[in-house]
């Protein structure tokens, strides 16, 4: 029978297996920048930007799981990141008061990141349960409201510094840690998408009523997708807190979510590859613009403010919607991100 000779049963050399290629690619990427930094050949400022961009990869891909793959519309994503960031930073900085070195503190830090993810997932679950029966734009506004509620609540908790936030967070999020978490996040999200669960989410995006009527428990899967997305947002937030070493409620406001949203929609709705490219690309573009605008401000006689950066992003976002509604990559994926078994069934990008 023809269906039997699927790829798993054929012998593929190890180096041709996509998971292997992906892993090797990541290791090479890590090794290059790690070595460059070690020997002082890499500008620390740009190294920081690379770290930030990788965290944005986690935030963007996880938001894409909710908005792109399952077709819901959340604009409270950074609220979940805030929960993750505050949970882990409270543990490491306020409760345990960890030093920034040592194996013991480091393992506690990893634990705090995971707890941050779990806390965010839990809040995501609580929010998703009653609200995910709302459709489209109403869901958007409710998630926005919840995001704001999370922010207002954190603002009022004195234990975590209220509006002043938590300063002096130990810098545990090294390049290595961030690369590992980003790699794992992408792999986990990919594995979910290319499974029966992912297909259920896609069917909800395509036609929720039909999905329910072919046996998909749509509420369950919407909440599941939302919870998983929130989990990774929490992880991203926790890593971010231990990278920039200072968090306050304003960092996780509506505009912060919009920034991630821009990455999702410019990159491609329903494309992990698009989210990865957009997260890295836009983080760098943003820094480039900031430097460029500063220069421009110095050389021109009139004032050129940093606000132009956001003007450019807003124009990019509107232009994407007008001319390429599904984002630059649409729902195409890089081949290496598609499991072999699903190869023919999936679409590739360039």
């Amino acid at each position: 029978m023809k269906g039997k000779e699927t790829v798993q049963n054929k012998k593929i050399p190890l180096f041709k297996k996509r998971d292997f290629q992906l892993l090797v690619g990541t290791v090479i990427f890590w090794a290059i920048f790690y070595t460059l930094t070690k020997f002082g050949m890499m500008n620390l400022y740009w190294m920081h930007i690379i770290n930030v961009s990788l965290i944005y990869v986690i935030l963007t891909t996880s938001l894409n799981l909710i908005n792109g793959f399952s077709g819901q519309f959340s604009i409270g994503h950074m609220g979940f990141a805030a929960v993750g960031a505050y949970t882990s930073a409270t543990l490491t900085t306020i409760v345990w008061n960890l030093p920034s070195h040592g194996v013991g503190p480091f393992s506690l830090f990893i634990l705090s990141v995971i707890l941050g993810g779990i806390a965010a997932a839990f809040i995501g679950f609580l929010i998703g349960l009653p609200t995910l029966r709302l459709r489209g734009d109403y869901l958007a506004i409710v998630t926005l409201a919840f995001g704001e509620i999370i922010r207002v609540t954190i603002n009022s908790i004195k234990f975590v510094g209220g509006p002043r936030g938590i300063p002096g967070i130990p810098r545990f999020s090294s390049f290595t840690v961030i690369v590992i978490f980003t790699f794992l996040s992408v792999i986990v999200l990919r594995n979910i998408i290319y499974s029966s669960i992912g297909r259920a989410l896609l069917s909800i995006r395509e036609d929720e009523v039909a999905s329910e009527l072919v046996g998909v428990h749509t509420t369950y899967y919407k909440v599941l997708g939302f919870t998983v997305g929130a989990f990774f947002a929490g992880i991203g937030g926790a890593l971010l807190a231990h990278l920039i070493q200072y968090i306050n409620p304003l960092q996780f406001g509506f505009m912060a979510t919009i920034y991630v949203l821009i990455m999702v929609y410019i990159g491609g709705v329903g494309s992990l590859s698009g989210s990865i490219v957009a997260a890295i690309g836009i983080t760098f573009l943003s820094e480039g613009l900031r430097l460029g605008l500063d220069k421009l401000d110095q050389v021109t006689p009139f004032h050129v403010g940093p606000e132009w950066r956001m003007v450019i992003f807003s124009v990019l976002l509107v232009a994407t919607m007008l001319y390429k509604t599904n984002g630059l990559m649409g729902d195409m994926e890089f081949k290496v991100l598609i499991p072999e078994e699903e190869d023919e069934n999936a679409k590739h990008g360039a």
Partner: peptide, 27 residues
């Protein structure tokens, strides 16, 4: 131009327009 596209693209565009007005004003 988005009248006959999915409703959510118009919503995202609206977010873009909002950002544009705010940041252009402050710029």
């Amino acid at each position: 131009p988005l009248r006959y596209k999915p409703r959510l693209s118009a919503l995202i565009t609206a977010i873009g327009v909002s950002m544009f007005l705010e940041y252009t004003s402050s710029a």
